[in-house]
Amino acid sequence: MTDNLRGLTEDYGSRYVGRFSQDPTVLDRFWKMRMDYMGEEAEVSLLEATTPQLEVRGMSFEAWRKEFSVRLRRAADRVRQAYCRQTEDGAVAEATISTRVLLRFRDLLLLSYRSP
Rank of each mutant, 00 (worst) to 15 (best):
R29L: 08
F20C: 11
V26E: 04
T87P: 00
D36T: 11
E41H: 09
A75G: 09
K32Q: 10
D3R: 07
S60I: 06
R78F: 13
G90K: 05
S45P: 02
Q53T: 08
T25F: 12
L110I: 11
L8W: 13
D89R: 05
R104T: 15
Y12F: 15
R85Y: 08
P116Y: 13
N4W: 12
E41S: 07
Q22H: 15
L102G: 00
A42K: 06
L110N: 01
D11Q: 12
W31K: 13
A93I: 03
K32V: 04
Y113K: 12
R29Q: 09
E41C: 02
S45C: 09
R19T: 07
L27W: 03
Y16L: 11
R114T: 14
Y83P: 01
R65K: 12
R104A: 14
K66A: 07
Y83K: 03
A63K: 12
S14W: 05
E43R: 00
S21N: 14
K32G: 08
T87D: 03
V56L: 06
D11W: 09
R78G: 08
D89Q: 07
K32F: 10
E40T: 09
T9K: 10
L103D: 04
E43Y: 02
S21H: 13
L102V: 03
Y16G: 10
V79Q: 03
Y12Q: 15
N4C: 10
S112Y: 15
V101K: 15
G90S: 07
S98D: 08
E88L: 07
R57P: 02
C84E: 14
P52H: 02
G39S: 06
V92E: 10
R65E: 04
D89L: 05
Y16F: 15
A93L: 05
D107A: 12
G13M: 01
Q53D: 15
V44G: 00
T2G: 09
R29S: 06
Q53S: 11
P116A: 13
G39P: 04
E67T: 12
S45N: 11
T25P: 05
E55L: 15
V70M: 04
F30E: 03
T87F: 02
R104H: 12
D3E: 06
W64R: 02
R74H: 13
Q81L: 11
L47W: 00
R114S: 11
L111I: 09
F68M: 02
V101F: 09
R57W: 13
V101H: 09
L46E: 01
L8G: 05
